[in-house]
Design a protein around this nucleic acid. Sequence first.
DNA 1: TTGTACGCGTTATCAA
DNA 2: TTGATAACGCGTACAA
Lengths: 345, 345
Amino acid sequence: MPELTVSSVLTAERSVGIREVARLSGVSIATVSRVFNDAAAVNPETRERVLEQAQALNYQPSSLGRNLVRGRSELLGLIVPNVAFPLYGEMIGGIEEVLGREGMSILLALSHDNVDSEFTAAQHLLRHAVDGGIIINSRLGLNAPLPAPRGLNWVQVAPEHTGTPHRVELDNEAGGRLAALEMLGLGRRRLAFVGAPGRESADRERGFAAELRRAGLIYRRAQGDYSEASGVQAAGELLEHNAAVDAVFVAGDLMAAGVLRALHQRGLRVPEAVAVVGFDDAAIASLLYPRLTSIRQPARAMGTAAAELSLRLLGGHRTEPITFPPELVRRESTGPPSRLSARHF
Amino acid sequence: MPELTVSSVLTAERSVGIREVARLSGVSIATVSRVFNDAAAVNPETRERVLEQAQALNYQPSSLGRNLVRGRSELLGLIVPNVAFPLYGEMIGGIEEVLGREGMSILLALSHDNVDSEFTAAQHLLRHAVDGGIIINSRLGLNAPLPAPRGLNWVQVAPEHTGTPHRVELDNEAGGRLAALEMLGLGRRRLAFVGAPGRESADRERGFAAELRRAGLIYRRAQGDYSEASGVQAAGELLEHNAAVDAVFVAGDLMAAGVLRALHQRGLRVPEAVAVVGFDDAAIASLLYPRLTSIRQPARAMGTAAAELSLRLLGGHRTEPITFPPELVRRESTGPPSRLSARHF
DNA sequence: TTGTACGCGTTATCAA
DNA sequence: TTGATAACGCGTACAA
């Protein structure tokens, strides 16, 4: 068997076009086009005939031709750091829901948390003439902007740098306040924070610190990198020297999983001895033992909001940045301090 | 400000085309095309001039026009049940890696574990003239095939129904055998299985059962649906009537999380009293307490394999279905039976 | 080495 | 209500 080239395979049986349908239904291609765009008036009988033929030939208007003449692609570019992180998955789910409704598709690119590949990914998407773009957790900022010809707009979800016009964000500071208030409300007074690099963690800490200040308290802090291992490590630091900590606010659920593990290993009961509040309310939060109280980031809603923003920009409308309020999801890792509980931890 | 229509916005400042570049560099569009496809010979000086102008105008050849004339889109369609499940995310990562290398992009669609939306998603992708397609966990089979004109090929990753020509799969049966051997090797003799609907779980059970038969053992079984809650429930059923179970093989990690929880709640130590083996080795496996021993599904490698298969098909080559061997990842949830351990569980 | 001209599949304008 | 026909942006025979 001779080796075939790519093009020979694909063009071997080029898909049936508008001409074919027109010819076999005895009308002009213009009429077929009209039938499929049901814009202008078409004689019901003619329409019927055309639709029938199209069905028989299994004809589908080609987006390629249509987009060429229209100057749009019905594609929306989406750049995500990675897809293995469930929170991003939820956002994508929200985006897809809205876009699907409008008949648009998602052109996906991964940035791997890397500024350079963010940029090249954007260029890649642009070559496909995407009508708009959404980028999650972008590190690109105003001084190093995303490429955007033709008045194309990028909507940024939780960008690292502020200042870009189209944004969907979580009020991270409010999230930090929620965590603090939960712990203070439970009577905890020896609080700690586990942070990570980046603006989001900083904002979360700022809110947390503000509430503690109001209560006249200080807090211990340790730094991680959002990984579970760093959570174990951070908890270790916080607890050494017999430090008396009775509540830990962790800037990410994965790190919180590490904190829980470190507490288990030291035989400290959660929440009786130490309460723990995570952040994101990722899927793992409710799988941990005990189930983790966490500050919920409405990822799916943020996705739909980003998609809607993108659509509005596409329509030439003006938009405002959107900030979502966080929400505390109370589970088993927070509760009143006690030594009388029947819990194992 | 007057409301603008979509088209008015996008065409307002239509991107610079090949004509513009040709005119300003004093050559024909054919030459510009040649420069950008470096196919034919072009005078170095001319090439330089064109490239310069292109740079100045920030010209990028439009995929729309290029694809139209070439009959390909450099797009690969990808249909996934959802994106929030980390295993899929890993696969997508693998796919993207291979495709990016070839300059191809991913057109993403979600099937929501639904046969109908699988089909419509495929049609959607086809309208964009994707050059090939990958579908994960498809429920479509030979009798209800995927739409595929123009000799387009779909590569199926872990399809529910067998018989489709281009497949990438895990040897689930071997996975079941691995789980059984691990438990038997630890001296466990009172085994149980928690299954779920579908072929994958059935295959896993078949391998598990085969090894037990060889050892002259029977096992208890309970049925779940891959959710954590169903794992809790299933474990409850297995343990009622004081049933003596000392090892549980669970067809999915999420369910295994539920099984662990149920064991904790009954005060049964893992792995001392009961050993647990999960399946998939999803990201959560190593976050559970204790860390879950699991049968690893090399998701990323399966993704790259699917993408490479797709590329080979695109090139007109013949291919064989690929089956990956599973691997047991031993963590804390399996170990010798003992009552002397210092573990809390 | 370069240019002319056609075609890719569609929409949209204009005339019929 | 319909049909010619001119775009859309590009690649590529073929001719020069």
